[in-house]
């Protein structure tokens, strides 16, 4: 897969800054002492197992988490309620696919916080159409959301996030549950958007298929385990601490591959049977 070059990070203050943030919900901490800066133009992947706090990280940027210690700054300021700092694309699992809306109706929700008339203005419609055309879903505008393929569904919700031209785009598991071709298409599209200047933060638990293709990966397991380009971050130690399971890292012709080690139970089983064989010999 060919990717356009990542956009050079720029600006004097970070677009998003976590300063020693410990946060969670109802007294249960999900992230502990996280300090991270994300600069305008970056393309960042949050990598970690389920329950590691990846979604919480996104929600902290959106101001939807209780901050127990530290500070989250967006554009150098603490989060304001009611101000949408970013376009957000939820995980497809959380969407009610039986809800009676068409693709265009979903995309136009991106403007829902403004205006008091029940219909969209001409400018909004034109903007929605332009974004849908860019994402290749304009011909599906009148379709019900359930009548779409996985990739098209993802694009419809991406279009909703993009209509207001946000500087920052947050995506929760954008490649979960789609086939390989769709996954590559989505990643390619995101790289293009990033190349045009949009800062992107996505979460994923796929190491080789997704995280390895991003310029910067933050490994999270409640705390930040490592932060940097995949070639530096993907070490057996970092991967094992992130996933809490032994991992093997293979470097081959500039490629980095991370693989699960055989299951510990299996290894112990092998060791035991070897030991037993040894007893027999003696």
């Amino acid at each position: 897969m060919l990717h356009p070059f990542p956009h050079e990070p720029r600006g004097e203050t970070p677009l998003v800054e976590f300063r020693g943030v410990t946060c969670g919900y109802g007294g249960t901490t999900a992230l502990v002492d996280v300090s991270v800066s994300i600069w305008e133009g970056e393309f960042v992947g949050l990598l970690g197992p389920s329950g590691a706090g990846k979604t919480t990280f996104l929600r902290a940027i959106l101001g939807a988490v209780e901050i127990y210690r530290g500070q989250v700054l967006v554009e150098g300021r603490p989060h304001h309620r009611g101000r949408a700092p970013a376009g957000y694309v939820p995980q497809v699992e959380t969407v009610d696919w039986n809800f009676p809306v068409t693709v265009e109706q979903v995309v136009l929700m991106g403007f829902a916080g403004r205006g008091w008339l029940p219909w969209a203005g001409r400018e909004e419609r034109e903007r929605a159409r332009a974004v849908m055309e860019r994402l290749g879903i304009a011909h599906l505008a009148g379709r019900h959301i359930r009548a779409l393929s996985g990739g098209q569904q993802q694009r419809a919700f991406l279009a909703r996030a993009l209509v207001s031209s946000p500087r920052l785009l947050l995506l929760d598991e954008p490649t979960a549950g789609v086939d390989i071709k769709t996954r590559d298409d989505i990643l390619h599209l995101l790289h293009e958007l990033n190349h045009d200047g949009t800062t992107i933060v996505l979460t994923t638990h796929e190491i080789n298929a997704v995280a390895a293709h991003l310029p910067r990966v933050i490994c999270i397991n409640q705390r930040v385990v490592a932060d940097g380009p995949p070639a530096q971050v993907f070490t057996p130690e970092v991967m094992s601490r992130t996933y809490g399971a032994p991992m093997t890292v293979v470097h081959h012709e500039g490629l980095v591959l991370v693989a699960e080690r055989p299951h510990r139970y299996y290894e112990e089983h092998l060791a035991r049977s070897r030991a037993r064989e040894g007893d027999g010999d003696a």
Binding site: A112, G113, P118
Partner: peptide
């Protein structure tokens, strides 16, 4: 009438509607 588009978003997905400033 006046809250139509916000109500639609809140009905569809209350959590995400909040992120979009509703």
């Amino acid at each position: 009438f006046f809250c139509y588009r916000r109500l639609l978003f809140v009905t569809f997905d209350p959590e995400v509607a909040g992120y979009y400033g509703v």
